[in-house]
Amino acid sequence: MIGEKPKGLRAHLTLTYPALMLGIFFIVPFGLMAAVSFFHRQPGGFYIPGFELTNYKNLYTALFGRTLVFSLFVAGLSAAVCVSIGFPFTYFITRMKRRAQVVWLVLLMSVLSLSEVIVGFAWSLLLSRTAGLSNLFVWLGLMERAVAWYPGFMALLFGICYLAFPYTVLVLYPPLSRLDPALPEAAQTLGASPIRTFFTVVVGSLRNAIVAAFVMVFVFTLGAYLLPQILGRPRHWTLSVLITDAAIYQTNMPLSAAMAIFFMFVSLVLVALTMMIGKRKRIKTV
């Protein structure tokens, strides 16, 4: 019964509904967005169908360029931070007893599910003058008086990392939990210290998983939209903010669609590049 070829219409009936739903509500919107990026803007309304490259030409501004570079920079930096903390963290978790593992995973899932707005709000509180961490430091005698640590670049970085950290762990969890426990043990019987084992054997054998995780987290953090507005200054706004603004506040959907398409294109190229570098490295070391 399993693994055979589907025969006739009846077998395919099962697939019809999901195919229709995904086709109508995902492919069509996507195609539409791509089309809209070539449409003509109608001030006050949404768009007039047509074909022009004006929207793409309008991307060529200092603001767009700066925002694009900044978005990629923040995403890359926070992905690097998340993976370098998340990898040892996930490794420790996967070596724990099942019960402890479940407790950590529940905590991580709960944090993961938090809305960006909630994360932003929580961090803005934590970094605020009246309710923040600096009060704790004053109380401990480490600081003279409480200060506000946001808005600013560091606040934004913390917020994004907090948002992306559970996601990073989730991406790293399957490969790490499937890592043969005999591997690090074998290294230790050969005389490697636990720390050395971790870096040589665990990191070494999972280099591909690390690259993949970096890419996933990078794309995930590219999506940050509210945090830059809550924790950053206007110069820290990312492309997501720009795209939404263009669509909603300037009701310039063609421009916004062009930005989105361009954005997607750039991130896909970067992802492909990262993957290629990851592969080349592997070939060199092997």
């Binding site: 995904l22 919107p29 967005m33 590219l222 999506g223 997607m264």
Partner: peptide
């Protein structure tokens, strides 16, 4: 049934989660 078009549909089903959400959101808006 392990057939390619079902697999393609599966990939389609997981892509909204992988793309930056703004892009999907803008698609929905259009």
């Amino acid at each position: 049934y392990r057939v390619f078009y079902a697999r393609a549909l599966f990939t389609l089903g997981i892509s909204p989660f992988i793309l930056p959400p703004v892009i999907t959101a803008l698609g929905f808006l259009s």
